[in-house]
């Protein structure tokens, strides 16, 4: 992309963002969508309100912690499942099916079950983990299988066994796909953590959302939702940068 194209893309992006901010403010200020749609400035004022700082800080810490743990556990499990399917091909079909079944079960249906079997504290991490596993498993599996058959032949003729082939060829070849999977998994971890908190975690963004909804604290509800969304976007942005680097390096 040329400098000029890049500037134009950035310009269009900034324009779009401005459009959203202005419409939000106008709609909220004039209550065009009712009293439950506050102006952006009111939501931001709630977020920076010193009286709320402690609440948001504790909630963010809890959610970030759960999302981070879920992201790490889920990435490791998803990667290990995919790698297992490549190093031991007979396991591949079964692992594919297991991942598909796991994905078919709605995470929200697992919530009450996890509360009972795990703990209230552990549920956000568990749901974040499950949300991440599928993304990472699918991306890693696709990446590990995409290899050039000729590369495969060269490694075979050089006398490589399946482990050597995995680490010299399949794994580096899969890294751009894995980075893409992590990019999608990062916001999934945040959403999974917030979802897990709904079922009665001690604290977190999800809890602030549920309690403010029940207490009709509209500005607080929107603030928590906005913070959750920002967290998700920051995670996505950070991993987009990582992905761009990995694609440039390994493809």
């Amino acid at each position: 992309m040329s400098m000029r194209d890049r500037l134009r893309t950035m310009g269009l992006g900034a324009f779009g963002l401005l459009l959203v901010i202005v419409s939000w403010e106008v709609i909220g200020r004039n209550q065009l969508l009712g009293r439950t749609f506050p102006a952006l400035s009111d939501v931001l004022a709630t977020i920076v309100d010193p009286a709320r700082r402690g609440l948001f800080q504790r909630a963010l810490e809890a959610t970030i912690g759960s999302a981070l743990r879920g992201f790490v556990f889920g990435s490791i499990i998803g990667f290990a499942m995919a790698a297992l399917g490549v190093i031991f091909p007979p396991l591949r079909a079964g692992l594919d099916r297991l991942a598909a079944v796991m994905h078919a079960v709605p995470l929200i249906a697992l919530g009450p079950f996890l509360i009972v079997t795990l703990s209230r504290e552990g549920t956000p991490t568990a749901i974040a983990t499950l949300a991440v596993v599928f993304n990472v498993f699918v991306a890693t599996s696709a990446g590990l299988r995409v290899g050039n058959p000729l590369h495969h032949d060269v490694l075979t003729v050089l006398g490589a066994g399946s482990w050597e082939r995995f680490r010299r060829l399949e794994l580096p070849g899969a890294l751009p796909f894995i980075a893409d999977g992590l990019k999608l998994a990062a916001p999934a971890a945040v959403i999974g953590a917030i979802l897990g908190e709904w079922f009665g975690a001690p604290r977190g963004i999800g809890i602030v959302i549920v309690s403010s909804l029940q207490n009709y604290q509209i500005d607080l509800l929107w603030s928590a939702a906005l913070l959750g969304a920002m967290l998700s976007l920051v995670a996505f942005g950070a991993f987009s940068v990582l992905e761009r680097w990995v694609v440039g390096r390994f493809r």
Binding site: V154, G159, G173
Partner: peptide
């Protein structure tokens, strides 16, 4: 590891 082979497509590792 006593056999060397080269194909029409160079099949070099891009990374």
């Amino acid at each position: 590891h006593r056999l060397g082979v080269a194909f029409q497509d160079h099949a070099l590792l891009p990374w």
